[in-house]
Amino acid sequence: MSTQAPPRIFKGAHCTFTLQRPATGVVHAIIEGHDVGEFGDAPFRELDSDVEHGAPFEIFIDARGVPAASLEVSADWARWMTTHREHIQRLSILCGSRFVELTASFVQKFTQFGSRMRIYTEADAFEEALRVAVGDDE
């Protein structure tokens, strides 16, 4: 998978958040550790550059390395998604724990994204969806 631009990496005491753009219209975020909100709105400001392009885009969040997310972080994601809903074609999240899966389900309902938000518990299915979105036919 070739990356169009260097990844944007946020490192904190509890978590690492990496944003990549492997293809036009595709954002791949990898979150590892306890996401307690230590990055503030910095990841959202970075994602705003995708919104500014005007074209709809897909977001893939690999959260398999996240044991739990704070309610504050989940609420921040829900607000950002709701604000930019017309630009987000689809949001897919790979959950690494039952707690993150339940939190993602809450965000899906709160934002009313319905089928536009896909919640994965199997890495192979998530990685296949990302591969298809990127257009990697290998």
Rank of each mutant, 00 (worst) to 15 (best):
S49Q: 13
F57H: 07
R90N: 14
R79Q: 13
F106S: 12
F110C: 09
F44R: 03
L47F: 02
E122G: 06
I9Q: 02
D35C: 02
R45W: 10
E58F: 09
E38Q: 02
H28F: 10
Q89K: 15
H53F: 12
S2V: 13
S70L: 03
Q20H: 09
A125C: 06
G40R: 00
A13G: 08
I61P: 06
R85W: 06
A68E: 14
A29P: 01
A55W: 09
T111M: 04
F60G: 02
R8T: 13
S105W: 09
I9L: 06
R90L: 13
G40H: 01
I93F: 10
V51Y: 03
T83E: 12
R21C: 08
G25Y: 04
T111I: 06
E86A: 14
I31N: 00
W77Q: 06
D76L: 12
F99A: 14
A55Q: 09
G65V: 07
L102P: 07
G33Q: 03
A55E: 14
T18Q: 11
P22Q: 02
G96L: 05
L130H: 04
H53G: 15
E72L: 10
G40Y: 00
Q4D: 10
F44C: 01
E86Q: 15
V36F: 11
S92E: 07
A123Q: 02
G135H: 08
R45F: 05
V132P: 09
A42R: 02
R21I: 05
G96S: 04
E72F: 11
G65H: 03
I30L: 06
L47I: 04
T103A: 15
F106E: 12
R21Y: 05
A68S: 12
W80K: 02
V36D: 14
V26P: 05
T82A: 15
W77L: 03
L91T: 06
S97N: 08
H14R: 14
M1R: 10
I30S: 08
E72Y: 11
G37T: 00
R85T: 07
E46A: 14
D48Q: 06
D35Q: 09
L102C: 10
P43F: 00
